[in-house]
Lab assay of single mutants.
Amino acid sequence: MQNSHSGVNQLGGVFVNGRPLPDSTRQKIVELAHSGARPCDISRILQVSNGCVSKILGRYYETGSIRPRAIGGSKPRVATPEVVSKIAQYKRECPSIFAWEIRDRLLSEGVCTNDNIPSVSSINRVLRNLASEKQQMGADGMYDKLRMLNGQTGSWGTRPGWYPGTSVPGQPTQDGCQQQEGGGENTNSISSNGEDSDEAQMRLQLKRKLQRNRTSFTQEQIEALEKEFERTHYPDVFARERLAAKIDLPEARIQVWFSNRRAKWRREEKLRNQRRQASNTPSHIPISSSFSTSVYQPIPQPTTPVSSFTSGSMLGRTDTALTNTYSALPPMPSFTMANNLPMQPPVPSQTSSYSCMLPTSPSVNGRSYDTYTPPHMQTHMNSQPMGTSGTTSTGLISPGVSVPVQVPGSEPDMSQYWPRLQ
């Protein structure tokens, strides 16, 4: 039975679970980093996980050691009161100082060594604690504590007292930064006198190289990059290397530039699409467009005044059976039934097929058609009795279509119309 579990990581490298990497692998990681390889490249070359490479390099940059820390136990506290007071002093002298600059000053002034120097995250935590204590304490208590930490007896009751030896409130920041720059020169002199001055200088240079600022491109470089971006948004590694040799930039910087440029292009394309949609959409909808001609068919113009009344309900007709019959029939052209047409008796099958359309009241044959006459024609229609054979009435077949029909004066039988409509 094995005491430890061995495995293979996602890159194909072998590791022992819970145990640190061998010293030979750690040394190779540092050597590759000094030669300029990126952590992701080191991870692929040595088949070590990216997190492990970053952790080893980060500890090497901070402490200069590649040895693993002790497994188990607690780390001794490195942010001692003396170190905290120095950090507060540096922050007062130059409020814009960075944590890694404070760390360098602690090393250069001999406050800490490589073994007990606090990390950048520890210094940031100390600065946050100082800021929170400043908010919790009152103004007087804060000034007393700062005077105690600074070891001075001057008056701290006013704002300019934060910067000793100065009279203009805006000047101390520059003086403090100048003092810090002077301390940086002392850093070089002190570290050069040490035993491991060369190694420390190499480590600091490598650290500065990794902690780079934003790349500033010249106009020629920007023009070359934009020209390549117009050709393709995704250049391959050969195109990037050719462009890197042409404009004297690292291939990694060119790759990052193209990634950022593609993101910018997507944002601009989104804005262009929004403007295009806004320009195509009308600002207001016309009133006429809300009524579609496919839904509402136009009603033909009436030929006679009587045809303006298109349904039985508008003429005072309360018989719903006839109203439904007229509205359900398709529109037909106007025609006239003459008196000489043969009077065919209704076929029983045809009569039964339209039995649902006729009223059940037996008085329908005896009703006159003056009910369908509009009010303004009552006088004219009353002067001509319906009993004469020459009287013409208008029957409504569908809305908007008038059918003048000659009705025999002897017997106005409704059943004569249905064979004609089939």
Rank of each mutant, 00 (worst) to 15 (best):
A139K: 13
N50Y: 15
G73P: 01
S108W: 10
M137G: 10
N116E: 06
A131I: 10
M148A: 14
K55L: 03
P95H: 09
S108C: 11
E93D: 08
P20G: 02
T80L: 07
P39S: 09
D140Y: 12
A131P: 08
P118A: 08
V14F: 11
T113L: 12
I45W: 08
P81R: 08
M142W: 13
I97G: 14
N17M: 15
S74Q: 04
A131N: 10
I66G: 02
R147Y: 09
L32P: 00
L11T: 02
P22R: 06
Q135I: 11
S6K: 14
D115W: 08
S24Q: 13
P95E: 09
L32M: 12
R44C: 05
P68I: 03
S108H: 12
S6G: 10
S65T: 08
Q135P: 09
G7T: 12
S65C: 13
S132R: 13
A99P: 04
Q89E: 09
K134C: 14
S119Y: 15
R67C: 04
M137S: 13
I123E: 05
L11P: 02
A131S: 08
A79D: 04
A139E: 12
P68E: 04
E133Y: 11
G12A: 00
Y90R: 05
V111F: 06
A79T: 15
I42M: 01
R67S: 09
L146E: 12
T113M: 10
T63N: 04
L107R: 15
S49V: 02
L21C: 01
G13S: 02
V30T: 05
C52F: 00
P118T: 04
L106C: 08
L107W: 10
N9I: 02
R38V: 01
S43D: 01
R92S: 12
P20A: 05
L149D: 15
P22K: 07
R128K: 07
A79W: 00
Y60L: 01
D104W: 14
I102S: 04
A79L: 13
M142P: 14
K145Y: 14
E82G: 08
S121F: 05
E93F: 07
V53M: 00
D23V: 13
S96V: 10
A79M: 13
Q47F: 06
V30Y: 02
S6L: 15
V120P: 15
I66A: 02
I117K: 15
G138H: 14
S49C: 01
A33T: 08
A131T: 07
S65N: 06
L106Y: 02
R105W: 08
G141R: 11
I66L: 08
V48A: 02
R38I: 02
N150M: 07
L46M: 08
L130C: 08
G13F: 03
N17S: 15
S54H: 10
I29D: 01
Y90D: 04
P76A: 08
Q89P: 00
R26T: 01
R77D: 03
Q2G: 13
Q27T: 10
S74V: 01
S54D: 01
S119V: 03
D23H: 10
M142F: 15
M148F: 07
Q10G: 06
G7P: 08
C94I: 07
L130T: 12
W100F: 07
Q136A: 09
Y61K: 15
S35N: 13
V30K: 07
V8E: 04
T80Q: 03
S74T: 03
